[in-house]
Computed example of a mutant assay.
Amino acid sequence: METEIYHADTINQAAEKIKAGQLVAFPTETVYGLGADATNEAAVKKVYAAKGRPSDNPLIVTVADVATVEKYAQPLSAKTRQLMKTFWPGPLTLILTLQPGALSKSVTGGLKTAAFRNPKNQATLDLIRQAGVPIVGPSANTSGKPSPTEARHVYHDLKGKIAGILDDGPTQIGVESTVVDMSGTIPTILRPGGISEEQLAAVIGEVQSDHHKVGKTEVPKAPGMKYKHYAPNAQVLIVGDAQWPDAMAWASQQSGPVGIMTTEQIKKANSLPQNGEWYSLGEDVKTASHHLFAGLRHFDTESSVAYILAQGFDRIGLGEAYMNRLEKSAGQKYFQTPDK
C-alpha cells in the first residue's frame, strides 16, 4: 500500500479515504493520531493491525463538536458540559457512559464507556467534518514506541500500512491529552496531560487521580494504563538535577555513545563527555514536553546509543504529564548515583 501525504488543500482526498474504510493519520495539538471511521468495525480493526496494538486497549473517539458526542453517549452531566465548554477544542479526553450498543467492542474494548476528544487543530476538525463521521484516534505509531509529534515520525512507523498522513507540521504540546473518567461519582484523572488537575478542579471542583496498575485480565478504561509505552530501543535512565555531574562521569566511562536529553541550563552547568550525544529539551518543562518524544525517536533512528540519560522534572502542572511519559519510556528506571 502506498502511503499518501495530504495537506490543507487536499483534506477532501483524505476524507474520502476515511469514508472508504481506510486509515489516515491526522495532526492534533498533542501528538499525531491514527484515524479510521469509528462507526466502521472493519476499519477500526485495521487500526489495531497497523499499530500492533492489543485488542483490549480501547480507542479514543475524535469528534468535531459536542453534538456528535451526544449521539453516542448517555445524557451529559453538568460537569461534563462545563469541561467541554472550558477546554474543548483542546487536550482533554473525557470518558463517558455510552448509550447501549452505540459503538462496537472494537472501539470500547467491550466496556460500557468510551473516550471522546475534540482536538484543537483546524485541519483535523475539517477532516472529521468532511468525512461525516467521528474517527478513532490512538497515537499514530507502532504500539509501545514513542508517540509521533511530526508527520515524518508517522511515516517511519506506518509507511505502507496506512492510506495516508495529513501533514500539518509539528504538534505544539508534545504529550498526549489529559484523560478524565466522567462515568463515576467523582471525576477521575486516568492519564495526566496538557490540562492539569488544578485547572480541572478550578472548573468542576473535586477531582481525583487513579494511579493503580491495571491487572493482566483487566480492560483499561484509557490508553496508556496497562501496556508498555513510549519506549525507544535504548534504555532510558531518569536523572535528577543534582545528579548530573555523576551522570556525566558515568556516561564517560561507557564503551559506546550515550544519549543525553537536558534543558539548555543543565547543559551549560555540566561538561558533556566526549562520547555524549546531546539532544536539547529547550528551556523548561513546557519545551521539554514538546521535545520529549522527538528526542527519543532521534536516538532510535539517527544514533546507536545503548543508554539515554533524560532530565526529570518536578511533578507540578505539566511536569506530571512529562514524568508520566518519561517513567514509562524508562520502565521506571532512574540513574543511581554511585557510592562515593
Score class of each variant (00 low, 15 high):
Val107Asp: 01
Gly164Trp: 00
Asn324Leu: 06
Pro100Ser: 03
Glu320Tyr: 03
Ser209Trp: 04
Val285Trp: 02
Gln332Pro: 02
Pro245Arg: 09
Gly215Thr: 10
Asp300Tyr: 11
Pro119His: 11
Asp181Ala: 10
Leu237Asp: 06
Tyr32Arg: 02
Ile5Cys: 00
Val258Ala: 07
Asn40Thr: 03
Phe299Asn: 10
Leu23Asn: 00
His7Met: 00
Ile308Gly: 14
Asn40Tyr: 01
Gln336Ser: 13
Glu218His: 06
Lys328Leu: 03
Ser183Asn: 03
Ala114Arg: 10
Gly240Glu: 15
Ser139Phe: 09
Leu292Asn: 07
Ile189Trp: 04
Asn141Asp: 07
Gly331Val: 12
Asp65Met: 11
Ile95Met: 03
Val69Ile: 15
Lys328Pro: 01
Val175Pro: 09
Ser104Asn: 06
Thr39Cys: 08
Val66Arg: 14
Thr171Ala: 11
Pro148Tyr: 10
Lys213Leu: 12
Ser183Cys: 07
Gly137Ala: 12
Gln13Tyr: 00
Thr93Lys: 11
Asn57Trp: 05
Gly205Glu: 03
Lys51Asp: 00
Lys340Ile: 10
Glu70Trp: 10
Leu127Tyr: 02
Val63Arg: 12
Tyr279Leu: 11
Gln336His: 11
Glu70Met: 13
Leu125Thr: 13
Lys226Asp: 05
Gly109Met: 11
Trp250Arg: 07
Pro338Ser: 07
Lys17Ala: 12
Ala201Tyr: 01
Thr30Lys: 05
Ser304Ala: 15
Val31Phe: 09
Asn270Val: 09
Gln253Ile: 05
Lys45Gln: 08
Pro27Lys: 02
Arg315His: 05
Ile18Asn: 01
